[in-house]
């Protein structure tokens, strides 16, 4: 049901029956290592290309999530997924393996919450019993496409972010147990004219603020209504900017406003400003944050995944970076 301008309220409150997160070696050294279901010691995952490794990462996360829900592959009625590679091949190839009806999504790093919002909408409208949604990214394949070869010696500025090697997947169902999805706010594309692909945090911060403020306005809520509000991948540069922007707009920003891009890696890991990538917010949400919800440490959270909708071509042609953010409310009821 539409609430306000751009927020859906899900009266049937779909359940997140299970979720899974799979990561690479670098993620395994981070503080959230225990929240991953599978961690790989090798970034190749035994494959002969990084693109295949990314697909493998996603397939494993899907298998694990389906297994944890006590379901079979055949029970999944729809699969909603996205990634960062050209023509979202990792998602489509995973859908080929799953052989489930599939909708491919692209929202850059906001894909995780775009998928969760749409999956919830499908389940809420009785259009399916079980829906699988998720997102993936692989450091080497994404850097290869968007930036330079991984072994190229180019110095990155202090605003650059590190693409996470991770996949996060959730199974949604009409009935069952687990945290429930109660609302989602779909973001607008916001472009503040920034064009530096090594500073995506600053480019995406206004989109995150726009969506959070729209969410609060549509539902008449504030930060106090949530135990945790997490943005997806603004990192050390973008997150303080988002905070200051909201303060400037007269919103009191509490300590439980955090960022997935600053959670997945430790201070001692050389990721410069923090993490990014479609898999980062997916793995942090479907691993760490959902685990905390299940343990009862959190009651209601808002996840706002942000995406920079640029292409390697568009920034070479000096286009600015359009950005988007989607917010989803997950709660224990």
């Amino acid at each position: 049901m539409l609430h306000g301008h751009q927020t859906w309220e899900f009266q049937n409150k779909p359940y997140i029956l299970s979720s899974a997160a799979v990561g690479g070696p670098f993620e395994g050294e981070g503080p959230l290592a225990n929240d991953f279901d599978i961690l790989h010691g090798d970034t190749w995952l035994g494959q002969d290309s990084f693109e295949k490794a990314e697909k493998k990462l996603f397939e494993q996360a899907c298998e694990k999530a389906i297994e944890k829900a006590g379901l079979k592959k055949e029970d999944i009625q729809f699969f909603l997924a996205g990634d960062l590679l050209n023509q979202i091949i990792s998602s489509s190839f995973t859908a080929r393996t799953l052989a489930a009806p599939y909708l491919g999504l692209f929202g850059a790093c906001s894909t995780s919450m775009e998928g969760l919002a749409l999956a919830s909408l499908i389940v809420n409208s009785h259009s399916a019993e079980y829906v699988l949604c998720g997102a993936v990214s692989h450091n080497s394949s994404v850097e290869k496409q968007f930036r330079y070869p991984t072994e190229y010696g180019g110095q990155k500025p202090p605003t650059a972010q590190w693409t996470a090697t991770a996949a996060g997947v959730a199974v949604l169902g009409k009935t069952g147990t687990g945290p429930r999805v109660t609302a989602a706010t779909i973001g607008r594309v916001v472009d503040m004219g920034l064009s530096d692909p090594f500073n995506m945090g600053a480019a995406m911060a206004p989109a995150a603020v726009d969506t959070i403020e729209a969410h609060f306005r549509d539902l008449g809520r504030t930060f106090d209504d949530y135990d945790l509000v997490a943005t997806g991948d603004l990192a050390k540069v973008g997150h303080p900017i988002a905070k200051d922007l909201m303060k400037k707009h007269g919103i009191k920003v509490p300590d439980h406003f955090v960022d997935c891009g600053m959670m997945i890696y430790g201070e001692d890991q050389p990721v410069i400003a923090g993490a990014s990538g479609a898999g980062c917010s997916a793995a942090v949400t479907y691993g760490h944050i959902l685990n905390r919800l299940r343990r009862g440490e959190l009651k209601r959270v808002l996840i706002v995944a942000t995406g920079a909708l640029l292409s390697p071509l568009s920034f070479q042609q000096k286009e600015s970076i359009p950005c988007i953010a989607h917010g989803v409310v997950i709660e224990n009821i």
Partner: peptide, 26 residues
């Protein structure tokens, strides 16, 4: 000139909060 006043304002706002490139150290 192509940027709107809001965009210009935000860019100045963001610039003030970005870590500067350590040119001398580099």
């Amino acid at each position: 000139k192509k940027l709107t006043p809001t965009q210009q304002e935000y860019q100045a706002f963001a610039k003030a909060r970005e870590p500067a490139r350590p040119v001398w150290k580099n």
